[in-house]
Design a protein around this nucleic acid. Sequence first.
RNA 1: GCUGCAAAGUGUUCUAUCGCUGCCUGGUUUCGGCCGGGCGGAGGAAAGUCCGGGCAACAAAGAGCAUCCUGCUUCUUAACGGGAAGGCGCCCUGCAGCGGGCGACAGCCAGUGCCACAGAAAAUAUACCGCCCCUCAUCGGGUAAGGGUGAAAACGUGAGGUAAGAGCUCACGGCAGGUACAGGUAACUGUAUUUGCGGUAAACCUCAGGAGUUGAAAAACCAAAUAGGUCCCAAAAUGGAAGUUGCUCGCUUCUGUGUGCUGUGCAAACAGCAACGUUGGGAUGGGUAGGUUGUUAGAGCCGGUUAGCAAUAGCCGGUCCAGAUUAAUGAUAGAAACUGCCUUUGGGCAGCACAAAACCCGGCUUAUAGUUUUGCUGCUGUA
Length: 133
Amino acid sequence: MYTFKKEERLCNKKLLDGLFRSGFSFLCYPFRVSWMQVDAALPATVQVVFAVSKKRYRRAVDRNLIKRRMRETYRLHKQELLHLPLHEQNQQLVLSINYIGKEIADFKFMDKKMIKLLMQTCDQISASHVKLV
RNA sequence: GCUGCAAAGUGUUCUAUCGCUGCCUGGUUUCGGCCGGGCGGAGGAAAGUCCGGGCAACAAAGAGCAUCCUGCUUCUUAACGGGAAGGCGCCCUGCAGCGGGCGACAGCCAGUGCCACAGAAAAUAUACCGCCCCUCAUCGGGUAAGGGUGAAAACGUGAGGUAAGAGCUCACGGCAGGUACAGGUAACUGUAUUUGCGGUAAACCUCAGGAGUUGAAAAACCAAAUAGGUCCCAAAAUGGAAGUUGCUCGCUUCUGUGUGCUGUGCAAACAGCAACGUUGGGAUGGGUAGGUUGUUAGAGCCGGUUAGCAAUAGCCGGUCCAGAUUAAUGAUAGAAACUGCCUUUGGGCAGCACAAAACCCGGCUUAUAGUUUUGCUGCUGUA
C-alpha cells in the first residue's frame, strides 16, 4: 500500500531519455512534472524519479532533505490518487518530478501540493486518452 | 571568579505510527511470489580533493639528459610535502632564563643576472656638497672622515697614521668561510687560529634525495537482445507482365537489371570471366544497455602490558562495526536534555552548529552551535 520499493523507481536509462525527449510536462509550483505513457510491460504500474537541481542547491544535505520529503509525500498519496485510476484504465506511466522552488518548503506545504499534482496528472492522462480515442 | 588564546575530548536522547536498505531466518506456495521474525544502517570533519600508500590495467634492457617535486638534523612509518624529539633564527620582552608562538631553515667564497624611486655612487666606486694638494684663479689631482638620499651606502668604536684621508696599521667587537681540538649519532655548540667583509636562490642556477602513466567511469567475468563489422559455406539468377489451370505451386513466353576486364561487331548489342552486391545458414571478436565480482576483515577497532623523552612499535586478550548504485540510512506526532528571552516561579515562547559515505587506508587544510578537561596571558576579589 504505502510502500516504495525499487520496482517503483525509474532506473532504466532508455526510458528516462525517452521521457525527457518526448514526454508531456506541466508546472505545479514548486514542482515540474514530466510524464509519458508506456506500452511495454513495467515491473510496476508507475515508475517515478525525483530530482533536485544541483545548481540551485549546492549542499548535498539540502538536496537529500528535499528529495526525502518529496518521496514521502508521493508515497502517502500515490495509491489512491494515481494507481487506482490508472489500474481501471489499464495504463502504465513513467513520471519525473523536479523540484524548482527557491526555498526549502516544509512538509505540510509539499503534502498539499503533491495531492494537487497527482490529481492534475490523472486529469491530463484521461484527457489525452479521450483525445486519442 | 571573569575574559581571551592554545591544545585535547564530545558532537543531543527516548517513545509511537508509516516507510527505505543490507544480512540472517521461519511458515506457505500453482515455484512467479505471499505472510512474518531478528540483527545492523553517515561523520569529526563523510567536505576540499591538497599530499602519501594499498589495489588494478597498461608500459618497461640499462645509463644519461630534460621536466617536475622536496630541502636544518635524527628518528618514526607501508609511505608522505605528515608526525615526534632536537638544533638554529625571529617574536611575546629593555636584558637573561623559564615558558609559549612562528619559520621553503641547503648553497650568493661555482658562475650569470637583478637591486624601483631618491641619490654623486646600488658594486672592478666615472666624487654632488665638503676636506686636502697645486695654482693669482680656473683647470687638474688626491680623498669614502662628515653631509644629504634610500629598504640597503662599502663592517662598528677608538687610537696610530696622513697634505687630507682610507682595515693602510693596531686594539677591542660584529658577521661569514677554512683548519685544529673538545662535546654531541647528527644538525650544531664552545675554544684557538687564519682568511675575508652589501643584499637577493618564492632570480636563473648549483648540490643532495625522489618521481613510469592512468584511476573503481580502474579491472575481471556472465548469458540473452538489437544494429552493424569481419570470415566461411550454400544458392545462382531475380523483379514485373502475359499465357497455361476451377485456384495455388509449377512450367512457358516477353521485358528490365550497377562496376571492371576479355572476345565478336562499323555501331547498337551479344557472349564469357572476375570480384562486389543480393538471399539463407554458421562462426568470430568488439561496442551499447543490463547483471555478478572488485566492494568492505582492514597498515581495522577496543582494553591491558612492555620498550622509548615522544611520535611509534612489539606482545596478550577481546571484538566484527554502513554498503546505496537515477543512489537507502527517512517522515510525522509527542516527550526529555541543552541554550536564550519573558515570568504571576506554576510555566510560556523561540532556538538546537558545520555538514551526507560511494574501492579502501594514513595525513594535511578548511567549516563548526553548545559543552568538558588542561595550560597560559590579562583583569578583579579574598587571605
